[in-house]
């Protein structure tokens, strides 16, 4: 594998052995850069959804308003679960840097469990709302609410599916530059989702409970 940095990608960037494992090979390091840019475009995507939500917030068309709909206990637990999962995800990266494969997998499993708790609460919130007639077809406000929060939720789902594949690869291959890069990318994705959630928490839930 030591030849890999003579790759497609030229042979002109000597690697500093002090940098983390995921940056050791040119190819992996490029992917990290690319993934940051991907998150950049994802941020623009969420910004557009936030802008739309803010425009639509008052357009309830006689249906339920955000004040009537949002359940403080539910979204508080969701928030705590997701914030904690970000912390445990950070611990997974920390253990990866120390080369402890099983600890990495352990923290990933904890993160997944917290992610599932988050998703469970979100899904039950949606089911409850739909049950009382607050469907996506009811009003512009509800359309924007479901799509903004749902887009985040589907990102979390993708994150869970993705990390499942990574756990299998960690079990098979251990911590190598390639698997380390994959876990690292997943972890920044997960933190990113946490950051987006903080905005959803404040813009959608907290503000929506007040106004």
């Amino acid at each position: 594998m030591s030849n890999a940095n003579t790759a497609v990608h030229g042979d002109h960037h000597p690697v500093d052995p002090n940098v983390p494992l995921e940056y050791h090979e040119e190819e992996n390091s490029l992917r990290v850069t690319g993934f940051w840019l991907f998150l950049g475009q994802d941020m623009i995507l969420f910004s557009s959804l936030f802008a739309t939500y803010i425009v639509m917030h008052g357009r309830v068309a006689g249906g339920p308003t955000s004040q009537q709909l949002f359940d403080v206990t539910g979204f508080t637990i969701e928030t705590i679960a997701l914030l904690f999962s970000s912390f445990t995800c950070g611990l997974a990266t920390y253990e990866m840097r120390r080369g402890h494969r099983n600890a990495v997998i352990g923290w990933i499993l904890v993160t997944m469990a917290l992610g599932l708790v988050f998703l469970g609460f979100e899904v039950s919130e949606f089911i409850h709302d739909v049950g009382i007639g607050a469907t996506i077809q009811r009003s512009g406000f509800l359309s924007a609410f479901y799509i903004l929060v749902g887009t985040h939720g589907s990102h979390v789902t993708v994150g869970l599916l993705w990390v499942t594949l990574l756990v299998i690869q960690l079990l098979r291959r251990g911590i190598t530059p390639a698997t380390a890069r994959k876990v690292f990318l997943w972890s920044i994705y997960w933190h990113f989702l946490d950051a987006v959630w903080i905005f959803i928490f404040t813009v959608v839930y907290l503000t929506g409970k007040v106004i």
Binding site: T52, V55, M56, R59, V60, A61, I136, Q137, R138, S139, G140, F141, L142, S143, A144, Y146, I147
Partner: peptide, 21 residues
């Protein structure tokens, strides 16, 4: 995507009625 959701799933992002914008 929002327009497609309007058309495929009956949401109200850009419709005349239902609070669309």
């Amino acid at each position: 995507a929002l327009l497609l959701i309007d058309r495929d799933f009956g949401s109200h992002f850009f419709t005349v009625n239902g609070g669309g914008a």
